[in-house]
Design a protein around this nucleic acid. Structure first.
Lengths: 142, 142
DNA sequence: GCTTGACTTCAAGTTGACTTGAAGTGGCAA
DNA sequence: TTGCCACTTCAAGTCAACTTGAAGTCAAGC
């Protein structure tokens, strides 16, 4: 089964421009061309799922590219996965504390948040969390 | 107690350029100038903690600016906080599932991850998680 | 045979949060 | 008084992951 870029776009939910970009980056390959047009094998969809997975686990496209350039099929280092899981776990804990503090603050009767000890604890927690480059998440851009 | 930008930088851990940038964005104010130089009140450090908190909870700088331009002291909408907490909670659940799946996969004896049902479930989970703009988190830049 | 519109390339633009560089200023220790 | 160097401004650069636009190609349906 072969697909043109429009079909892959439709099935994967990714715009064609993104697919071209991914190809340029070496994340996916087309099976060839029909005229000018790229022709994709059906398996590219599986590959794209894998890429989505990596992205949502917090890997960069470059990280992901490294994961399966070798050979052709995904080669994923189990130790790397475990390390990523641990990292994720730390993030989750921190976010959990943040969520709880947010909830408390939302319900807190102190006239100013500044006088609320939970809020102050949250402040210290946040300040301790330096060294992250990007907004950590949920940049949903309202 | 007043501080020059170098001192604020040292105490907050933020580069001076970032402090100027924050001032330009209206996130912090200097108490005035001594000659050309900005003079900050000690309270700016508290403000910076607050900003760090907001950032780590996933608010953009603009979001944060909105939170305390009114008046001068932080005005944080409790409903907004609660909403953010809920959003955070959804993220946490998703990340938890991802973490578990990563761990499973790291330990999974299937010869190829593709044959592992948990891995496949994770793939579906990841594919369902579209519509996020930025890499969700932990872009630690190895 | 001709139009249509989905495809193509390539360069440039976008976004958010900063950083960097060049060129200038001025407070303060010696 | 002098000189250092932390400060200043302003413009431009960076980064990742794309998106957009202009200009061109071409397979297929009418």
């Amino acid at each position: 089964m072969i697909l043109d870029i429009g079909e892959v776009s439709k099935r994967s939910g990714l715009p064609a421009s993104t697919l071209r970009y991914y190809e340029e980056k070496g994340l996916i390959q087309s099976a060839g061309r029909r005229g000018l047009r790229r022709v994709f094998e059906h398996s590219v969809l599986e590959r794209l799922s894998l890429i989505a997975l990596g992205r949502s686990a917090g890997f960069s496209l470059d990280d992901i590219a490294d994961m399966f350039t070798e050979g052709g099929r995904p080669r994923i280092d189990r130790a790397q996965l475990a390390a990523k899981a641990d990292e994720l776990n730390r993030v989750i804990r921190r976010l959990g504390a943040m969520r709880d503090a947010l909830r408390h603050t939302a319900a807190c009767p102190a006239p100013s948040h500044m006088e609320c000890p939970t809020f102050q604890r949250m402040l210290r927690l946040a300040s301790a969390t330096r060294a992250r480059k990007r907004p950590s998440l949920t940049t949903t851009k309202a």
